[in-house]
Structures are given as C-alpha cells and as structure tokens.
C-alpha cells in the first residue's frame, strides 16, 4: 500500500508539473482529480464542521461525560436557529419566484462582517500604524545607528508619500503629483522586495516536491 501511495503521489505531481511543457491529457487527468477531490473534501469539511459540528451539535448537544464520569453535556444554544433560518433563506434562490429573499442573508453577512472588520482594521492597520510612523528622522543625542535613521526616514516619507498617491480627491499635479510619484516609487520598491520573497516561497514549494520525488519516492537523497 505504501508503494502504491508513493507512486500515485509521484504520478500526480509529475502530471501537474507536465503543464509547464504544455497542456496535455496527463495534466487534464490530474487537474480533474484535484478539482473533484478538493470540492468533495471541502463539502465534507463544511458539512461536518459547520452544519453538524456547529449547528446540529449546538442545538442538540451530545451527551458527554468527563473521565471521572461526571456529565458535562453542553447547554443547547437556540440562537443557532437564527443562523440556520438565514441559511435556509439563502437557499430560496432555488425557487425562482422568491429568489429575492436570498438577498437578506447576503445583506446580513456583508453588513455584520463589515462592521466587525471595521474595528479590527481601523485599530490595527490605521491607528497603530500611524502611531508606528511617528519616528524621529535625526537628532543630537539620538543614539540610533545610521541604519535605523535611514529606516525611519524611509518609513516616514514612504508612508506619507504612499498616502498621497492613494488620495483620490485631488488630481496628481504639481507638488502633490510629485509626492504621489515618490509614493509610487516606494510602492514599486516594496513590490520588488515582495516579489523576491515570493520567488523564495515558490522555490520552497518546488524544493518540497523535489525532496519528495528524489527522497521519499526514489530514495536518492542521503
């Protein structure tokens, strides 16, 4: 069984990699297996974790006992019916005449998530970041290294210029336009660094697969 599993994994890996040469039936087979398997996997995960694990068990808790034999069955949570009702409303779009009802739960999801995210993003990505940008650019008796000072200048100027670039209420002309260009310059530098990191990430994935093919499968790596 172990031999079969290894060969199957190698067959699928090489099949997907063969796309780099050109689209071919081997790749199509692997793609179909991957898509089918993953769709099935997610269906099972979502069913057992959400519909069964969250809703069903939440409303009708299973009888549970701890190791000492004491009952620790949870209290039923009837609020979950509200969520279930919204879920059923979502399915209403299968009935053409009342399909519009499905927009209600959609509105609930969009509205509640936006509200919850507002605080998270506002606090972590705006307030804390503005606070983190208040850094000294230079100073007598300021015992930071040249590296730290350059870093501070990059953070302060880059953040300011970046904000100017993303300011949509004013045309990018004159000094404002110039600052926006500095902002784009910083953005491109950031993207370059980010690209480098991603190359590293992709290489890591490839190394992982190569390790499998040459090591686990063929046993060539000592």
């Amino acid at each position: 069984m172990e031999h079969f599993a290894l060969w199957l994994a190698a067959f699928l890996t090489l099949g997907i990699v063969s796309f780099l040469y050109k689209d071919n039936p081997w790749y199509k087979l692997c793609e179909a297996i991957f898509v089918g398997l993953s769709a099935g996997y997610w269906f099972v995960v979502l069913f057992w974790d959400n519909i069964y694990g969250k809703f069903w068990v939440g409303v009708f808790p299973l009888e549970e006992f701890d190791e000492a034999g004491r009952e620790i069955t949870a209290e039923p949570d009837y609020w979950l019916f509200v969520g279930a009702a919204l879920g059923i409303l979502m399915l209403m779009r299968l009935v053409p005449n009342i399909g519009w009802i499905s927009r209600w739960p959609l509105a609930f999801i969009v509205g509640s998530t936006a509200g919850l995210y507002l605080i998270n993003y506002f606090s972590s990505n705006m307030m804390r970041q503005v606070q983190g940008t208040i850094v000294p650019l230079f100073g007598a008796g300021y015992d930071a290294s040249a590296y730290a000072i350059v870093g501070n200048i990059v953070v302060a100027v880059g953040t300011f210029a970046g904000l100017v670039y993303f300011f949509f209420s004013k045309e990018h002309r004159g000094v404002f336009g110039g600052t926006a260009k500095v902002g784009v310059f910083f953005l491109m530098l950031t993207f370059g660094a980010s690209f480098g990191y991603t190359v590293m990430s992709r290489m890591s994935l490839l190394i992982g697969r190569m390790d499998f093919l040459l090591g686990d499968w063929l046993g060539m790596i000592k």
Partner: peptide, 22 residues
Amino acid sequence: GKALAMVIIVVGVLAITIGQAW
C-alpha cells in the same frame, strides 16, 4: 481619514525629531 493620518504623521514626525534633537 487619509488626510488626517497625513497631518498626524507630519506633525508627529516633526515634533519627535525637533523634541529629541533640541
């Protein structure tokens, strides 16, 4: 919001730089 952040950054950076330097 962005304008507010820009103003705070400029004021804050100038204040901390001047404050520490002098």
